[in-house]
Amino acid sequence: MSDRYDLIVIGSGPAGISAAINGVIRNKKVKVFGSRNLSEKVQKAPRVDNYLGFHGITGNELKDVFSQHLEKMQVEITEEKVDAVYALGKYFAITTKDNSYEATSVIVASGVSNKKSLEGENEYLGKGVGYCATCDAPIYKNKKVAIVGYDVHAEEEANFMLDVASEVVYIPLYGQPEKIKDGVNVVLGRPLRIEGNEKAERLVLHNDHIDADGIFILKDSVELDQLVPGVQIEDNHFVVNRKMETNIEGLYAAGDCTGKPYQYLKAAGEGQVAALNAVSFIDNMQ
């Protein structure tokens, strides 16, 4: 069994790092997943006037202040993209592309993604539409599959599917594919919607359509309910209470992913509340 962390924080924006710092102050074994640059949104802000204590600071300067704070507290950031958080009852399993981690409690501070689902995507999910081509490959033996790839990592799954399916159509949304196998039919276009009857049957592009038995949508950022299967979501945000608890015991959320307003101080405050409640939860579990 892998070493179990007390607390795993997913996201390195203001909510995530505030949560991590408060977890570390309370002597918990903490791991943070995110980016060394912390948050693209913070980094790119031209000027910030509403973060208490910092008037007229640029986003990049604020990021540096955050980084120094983390350094002083010896909080490191693991640069792996979290694919899913599984609530296994007594603990959580957190999986990335290559690794799996365990934690007693989890705080999701993943921000918000503005990528909308395709029309029909949710309706046909599990009825011909999927998010994990490698998982579902055996079902599409000798069938035709269309794969929409939001970033280069999707190419690997398309290549894998080619070993099984009779035909693989790949629609890259990031420009020309780099490592796609010969035999995969690459179609450039913008997907509009998924159509079908009882099952998904067709992916409609702005200038074309592709009939397929299976349609896979492989995104660079995972939707919140894909990230945490079974979590309660409303209007694309986690449903949380005043303690930042979600419907899953031991799982907390903080920052933009819990809803508006999308502000740094609100995020940092929520991260702190989430961390302190997670600490009580962890103490009660031991």
Partner: peptide, 10 residues
């Protein structure tokens, strides 16, 4: 389920 499906293992 199938053997190589990660979520299945969970």
């Amino acid at each position: 389920w199938a053997p190589w499906c990660g979520p299945c293992k969970m």
